[in-house]
Design a binder for these strands. Structure first.
Length: 208
DNA sequence: CCAGACGTTGTT
DNA sequence: GTCTGG
DNA sequence: CCAGACGTTGTT
DNA sequence: GTCTGG
């Protein structure tokens, strides 16, 4: 799954990369945790993209129990209402996965693109305290598989615009959901500094 | 995702 | 895995 | 007890 | 153990 990621670029750069508008304050973070704000890109009906801040995780209550929906399995996403009407892209420098070394010991790894930036496919909603989002997941590719069985849905450059376009059909959207090629990614072990959500520093991504 | 806190009865 | 229904 | 469902993940 | 917060 994807429960922690980093995004340390400035808003001006993100606006350029995604041809998006929007004036938001973003200090950058190498360790974005659930409930925390992150920049997301949404396409408005006017076919213009806008950067907004949204919280990681959709508050859900099901059968009396509430929890944060951090991820949605892409295999099950197409029937959701938000899949049809509230898609977003989450820019990320990289994401973290934890390897179960033993029942009590988990080793974090950092996964990042060899070039450029990751664009996670996401869904958003209006929560009580503002916008919030969830990240779609897919089966892990060969690079991630040894560490964890799932990974975020990562969109290529062209796929980003199709994903965001309000008039894309469900059939078109389904084609965009595929494991990102392992050959375009890299990974390394990182220290457990990332474990603590209060550490936002670059040391989170330093190779161990 | 991980870290950290944890509250009622009523005494091994 | 957990939860529900039979 | 098992079968089946379940808007997160999760399995030695 | 479970629950909450980041």
């Amino acid at each position: 799954m994807c429960g922690r990621f980093g995004q340390a670029r400035k808003i001006t750069e993100l606006k350029q990369l995604y041809a998006a508008e929007g004036n938001i304050e973003w200090p950058g973070s190498y360790n974005i945790a659930p409930t925390e704000l992150a920049p997301v890109i949404i396409e408005t009906t006017s076919q213009e993209r806008e950067l907004k801040l949204a919280r990681f995780g959709m508050p859900m209550t099901i059968k009396g129990k509430s929890f944060l929906l951090l991820n949605v399995q892409s295999e099950k996403a197409a029937t959701r209402e938000d899949f049809k009407f509230r898609r977003c892209v989450i820019p990320a420098d990289g994401f973290y996965e934890w390897e179960k070394v033993s029942p009590k010991d988990r080793q974090p790894y950092y996964f990042s693109p060899k070039q450029g930036i990751f664009s996670f496919a996401g869904l958003w909603m209006q929560g009580r305290t503002g916008l919030c989002f969830t990240i779609l997941t897919v089966s892990a590719n060969e690079l991630v598989q040894p560490i964890h069985g799932r990974m975020p849905v990562i969109l290529g450059h062209n796929a980003v615009y199709q994903w965001l376009a309000p008039n894309s059909t469900v059939e078109t959207l389904k084609l965009l959901v595929e494991p990102f090629p392992a050959s375009l990614m890299q990974s390394w072990k990182v220290s457990k500094a990332v474990n603590s959500p209060s550490n936002k520093d670059i040391i989170c991504i330093n190779s161990l």
